[in-house]
Design a binder for these strands. Structure first.
Lengths: 212, 212
DNA sequence: CGACCGCTCCCCCTTAAGATAGAGAGTCGG
DNA sequence: CCGACTCTCTATCTTAAGGGGGAGCGGTCG
């Protein structure tokens, strides 16, 4: 490690709520001669303030974090710097999560069970502003294409359905009539291609539309 | 690092399907003067064969792994060596998972978002055959006490309910009548204190009775 | 402006789900 | 051997859920 070190190292921020994962990534990254960890964050808010302070080459981001979830962090960071290079690193492989992050402007998306080499390759790719998406993840993103998306109201209803609420209960909570609640549920069933509300919950969970 | 190194180091096997997590734990453990990682495993079967080969002081085990899940590994390893010292390290905080592992003989249970110090303390405790359970986890285990447990058949039915199957469909798949399926569902609702099947799924998921 | 969309409400109708109660056959442990 | 438990099945009844329509109203956008 001598010659190629002249060029500046890739600076990386790690945002993950598990100290163990941060340690693992930090160990991997700092072992490389061409990159280094400049900061770590344990929740969404920390990730944003850290980004503002350090403006790293790459932000490695977990999707599920306390205080502010990954998608919101992506949105906020890209507001601060539209050219920010963000690599999503998560256990969630639902097409909705993937679609949301990538369409919002994240440069890469990979799963936590990825081998070391792939993780490092992804960081390098994203640092050069090249998108990185593993084939399985890309396939999921394509699956999402063509599928109808739910409206905000439908997502509200879906959330309550997933909690096991009845149509009547949902109506009360959303201050609408039971008939309207049923209309929304029907729309959800149609869009998710489900026969019953319970199946709708299963489908929505698999796709990452809801996180129980 | 000199004097206290005379006593043999605590040997540790790490079983987790995420390379990143294994790296993180390995880095943490190997930095300590009184412990070392002797093997790693990426799935349940590997964990068992690794244990048989090395007979480590502590087996750190993730619950959700390919091929064979954590609870099954705990069972098998304790068959091999009833005095095995197993520390569960997972993201799942459902009372059922915790109860199953601890009642089966795991010595410790902690969550992946635990701070470094707690993780190391847990490994040391378990290595000395002292049980380690964080207060929040212990509280969950106590919650489980008094709650009725489901029969195997009820778990079968619950699984299908969670997939969104109708009573008729469940009956066909289990080769029973729809009436019997309803009887099981009814028993499930009563035991889980739920009003509808969808709520039952939500409760069962929270408690860790099913993993979607 | 007119088309489109999202949200709201309404109707009727069929089917699935849940509540209640009873009962026979099998297994297991005291 | 006798409870206790599990699994199975039965029947009836009430209510919730789902299918198929239609329709008004406030936006937005070409």
């Amino acid at each position: 490690m001598a010659a190629e070190l002249k060029t500046r190292r890739i600076s990386v921020i790690l945002a993950d709520d598990h100290p163990v994962v941060r340690d693992g990534l930090a160990a991997m990254v700092n072992q490389q001669s061409d990159m280094e960890v400049v900061a770590e964050a344990g929740d969404g808010d920390e990730a944003i303030t850290s980004y503002e302070q350090h403006h790293p080459d790459v932000l490695v981001l977990d999707l599920r974090m306390p205080k502010r979830d990954g998608v919101a962090v992506v949105q906020r960071v890209l507001e601060i710097n539209p050219k920010a290079r963000i690599l999503i690193m998560t256990t969630y492989d639902g097409d909705e999560d993937i679609f949301q992050c990538l369409s919002q402007g994240a440069k890469g998306y990979l799963l936590k069970d990825a081998p070391r080499q792939e993780i490092l390759a992804a960081i390098r790719a994203v640092s050069e502003d090249r998108p990185y998406t593993s084939s399985t993840v890309a396939a999921k993103a394509l699956q999402r294409m063509g599928k109808p998306s739910l409206t905000q109201r439908e997502l509200d209803v879906l959330q309550l359905v997933a909690e096991g609420r009845s149509n009547k209960d949902i109506a009360r909570r959303l201050s609408i009539t039971e008939g309207t609640a049923k209309t929304h549920v029907k729309a959800i069933l149609t869009k998710l291609d489900a026969i019953s509300r319970t199946e709708a919950v299963a489908v929505a969970h698999k796709r990452g539309l809801i996180h129980l």
